[in-house]
Design a protein around this nucleic acid. Structure first.
Lengths: 102, 102
DNA sequence: TTGTTACTTGACAATAAGTGTCAAATATAG
DNA sequence: CTATATTTGACACTTATTGTCAAGTAACAA
């Protein structure tokens, strides 16, 4: 089970790219990319898109990993975590089928 | 499908309690409670516990509603929302079975 | 009308959280 | 040792979130 940071780092190294090269393409400081790869900072969606491009990763898949990472860390310490996910799913379905309100 | 705010407001009114009374018990400004009930602000866990007490709601159930609300609103706009939840669940199971790292 | 009660709203300051930049500190390899 | 790659931490800056407060609306009674 890889974190988003691990995915990015692994793929970058597989492709033989340097932090400097990738960060230049994404147009961020390489310190930031270093932190993203170690899950110390979170990428924005723009960064994710650019990263997916240069690292030849599937954009949607990367986004899914990113968001699910965030959620997982948000609730992993709750002992009701799996119940939370079930209820959240119901709420989302409800919200999607009742698009106007709020 | 009720939001956390609706749950709190409904139960308070059922019990015939005033914002003033409940907010005094929870030890917060009644403006804050008003906003919580309209989902304009999020309660802390301490507030939730106190609210569950005075409103005779199940503490764990309330927490689940609270967190799932947060998550639902976080990802409802993603069209990959349900995939996200599935991946998140896997990640949580993984994290719980590998407790030491990070 | 006038007054009272319950609730809502918005402005405000204080605090916390997140951001990018940079230079110095560590590796890692040649 | 030297050079290159990466990490770290301090810093200033912006953005979010917070509690407090006073003024606002709305409903109703006197």
């Amino acid at each position: 089970m890889e974190t988003i940071g691990q995915i990015l780092r692994n793929k970058r190294q597989t492709l033989g790219l340097l932090l400097r090269q990738v960060s230049a393409y994404v147009d961020i400081d390489q310190a930031i990319l270093s932190k993203i790869e170690r899950n110390e900072r979170k990428p924005t969606k723009e960064m994710l898109d650019k990263l997916a491009e240069i690292l030849k990763l599937d954009k949607d898949e990367l986004l899914i990993q990113f968001i699910s990472d965030k959620i997982a860390y948000e609730i992993v310490d709750e002992d009701c975590a799996s119940k939370v996910l079930k209820v959240a799913e119901k709420k989302i379905k409800y919200l999607k089928s009742h698009p106007i309100q709020n």
